[in-house]
Amino acid sequence: MKTHHIEVQKFKAASNSSTSGMMTFKVDALIREREPVDGIEPSSLITMTEANARVLMALLKTQLSEMDSRKPKSRHGRHG
C-alpha cells in the first residue's frame, strides 16, 4: 500500500450524492509519498491549517444538512 502526506491548501467546492451517500470536496493540495513508519500500520496523513479546518467544518455542516433534507422525515430519528 502506498502512503501519502496530503496538505490541503484550499477548499474550492463541496457536493453530495443522495444516491450513493458520498460527499465530494474539490481541493487544491500538495501530495507527496510518505514512507511508512516501521511497526505502525501504514497510513496517509491529511494536514490543513486551522482556517481550512474551519472551512471544512462549515462545508460538512452544509452538505449534511442538504443530505438530511432529502431524507424522508421518518428517517430523522424521532423520539417516542
Rank of each mutant, 00 (worst) to 15 (best):
K2L: 11
K2G: 08
K2V: 12
K2T: 13
K2W: 08
T3D: 12
T3Y: 09
H4W: 15
H4V: 15
H4A: 15
H4L: 15
H5G: 06
H5Y: 09
I6G: 13
I6S: 05
I6V: 15
I6H: 05
I6M: 09
I6D: 10
I6R: 01
E7P: 00
E7Q: 08
V8W: 04
Q9K: 14
Q9A: 12
K10D: 15
K12G: 09
A13K: 10
A14W: 09
S15M: 10
S15Q: 09
N16H: 10
N16K: 01
S17Q: 10
S17R: 04
T19F: 08
T19W: 06
T19N: 08
S20K: 04
S20G: 05
G21F: 09
G21S: 08
M22G: 04
M23H: 01
F25G: 00
F25S: 00
F25V: 01
K26P: 09
V27T: 14
V27K: 01
D28V: 07
D28T: 06
L30N: 11
L30H: 09
L30R: 07
I31Q: 10
R32Q: 14
E33P: 00
E33A: 03
R34I: 13
R34E: 15
E35Y: 01
E35H: 04
P36I: 12
V37F: 02
D38R: 04
D38G: 04
G39S: 02
I40W: 07
E41G: 03
S43Y: 09
S44K: 11
T47V: 00
M48C: 09
A51L: 13
A51V: 13
A51C: 07
A51E: 15
A51D: 14
R54K: 12
R54D: 15
R54V: 11
R54T: 11
V55F: 05
V55E: 08
V55K: 05
L56D: 03
L56K: 01
M57H: 13
M57N: 13
M57W: 07
M57E: 14
A58C: 13
L59F: 11
L59W: 03
L60M: 11
L60V: 10
T62R: 12
T62M: 14
L64T: 04
L64K: 01
L64Q: 07
E66Q: 10
M67A: 15
M67R: 04
D68H: 02
D68Y: 06
S69Y: 00
R70F: 08
R70Q: 12
R70L: 14
K71N: 06
K71V: 04
P72V: 08
P72T: 04
K73N: 03
K73F: 02
R75W: 12
R75P: 03
R75N: 07
H76D: 00
H76A: 02
G77A: 03
G77H: 01
G77M: 00
G77Q: 00
G77R: 00
G77S: 00
R78G: 14
R78D: 12
R78N: 12
R78F: 12
R78C: 11
H79T: 13
